Amino acid sequence: MRKSLIVLLSLLLIVILGFGTYRTIASKDEKHYSQHDVKGLITEKYRGKIQSVEHIGESYVAQFQNESGIYKAIINSEDGEVTDLVQIKSSGKTSLTETEIKDIALKQATGDISDIKLHEDKKNPYYDIEVTGKEKKVQMKIAKMDGELLSKEEYKLETNEIEQEGKDSEKSSIINKKKAEEIALIKFKGKVKETDLGEEDGLLQYEIEIEDSSGQEAEVYINAYTGTIIRFELDKDD
């Protein structure tokens, strides 16, 4: 009886230890990034074309190329974190200019850029941008390297903020036709066909008609005082 009990306990202990070892191995396998995962991460995060991926110790060393040049990235094989990023060769254009970043921001939100700050993060430098429109503010993070939109949050303006913006607009002189057309062309690339200055609902505004290379037409309505895009309309084919 005693021998049977000892044998039973021994078998139970072996089962418990074996199950624990299996769980540990399974847990590690679940967390471990494969070469396929690393390639997907690089392609999504940096829009790069993979040249090589090598597994060394606890990390992957990946070399890739994008519009800015050739890079080497060190990626933690456990959690996929990029621990280091080094540019090996430049393509001649290491990053986007502030003007290009502003253009990207104004395609994402209607209004004026009220604040812009550069954060020189070693792994992925980015701009913090705030665009203030007629009734809301939009805060964005845009990657300096390739212009990727990293985040975007919208906030509705309080009544007093809207009123203040209106008062400021009334005190300002109107922007000229050329400036209004430049703003409109940032929103919709093409050729300006017609620009009219008139008043609608008590507000002086530019109505600018644009046609792109494919024949698609659009109208951009711009506050003549602030340069804020009030409305954007794409013409639909009949």
Rank of each mutant, 00 (worst) to 15 (best):
L41K: 06
G69N: 06
T83P: 02
E207P: 03
H36S: 13
E153V: 13
N76R: 07
E98N: 05
M145A: 14
E182I: 04
K3N: 14
N66V: 00
K136H: 10
M1R: 13
Y33R: 05
K187L: 03
T195V: 09
F232Y: 04
D115W: 11
K117Q: 13
S68Y: 08
K122D: 11
D168V: 06
L41A: 02
S52C: 03
E153M: 09
I25V: 07
G48P: 00
T110R: 15
E170S: 14
K31W: 11
S34T: 13
K31D: 13
G92R: 04
Y221W: 11
I6C: 04
A218I: 01
A224T: 03
L185M: 02
E217M: 10
D29L: 15
L118P: 01
S59D: 15
F64W: 06
Q164K: 14
L9K: 09
Y225Q: 14
Y155C: 01
L8V: 10
E211M: 07
A73Y: 01
Q35V: 13
G166C: 06
M145H: 12
I74G: 05
E182S: 06
H119G: 10
N76K: 08
K31I: 08
S59G: 04
S95E: 11
Y206D: 01
T226D: 02
S90C: 03
D237M: 10
K3I: 13
K177C: 01
G111E: 02
E81G: 07
E148W: 07
I230E: 08
H36F: 14
T110Q: 15
E182K: 03
I104R: 02
E163M: 10
Q205S: 10
K31H: 12
S91L: 04
G80Q: 02
L204C: 08
T24S: 15
Y46C: 01
S90L: 05
E44T: 11
Q139V: 14
Y33L: 02
K117M: 10
M1E: 15
S151I: 05
Q108D: 05
I116K: 04
F188M: 04
Y127R: 03
T21R: 12
S68E: 09
V53L: 06
V15M: 11
I25F: 04
V192R: 01
N76D: 10
F64Q: 03
K31Y: 12
D146K: 07
Y60W: 00
L85I: 08
R231H: 13
D235R: 08
K193H: 08
V220M: 03
E181T: 05
I16D: 06
K134M: 11
S91W: 00
S214W: 11
K236T: 14
L204H: 09
F64T: 03
T97W: 04
D237F: 08
M145T: 14
I116G: 01
K189N: 11
K178D: 12
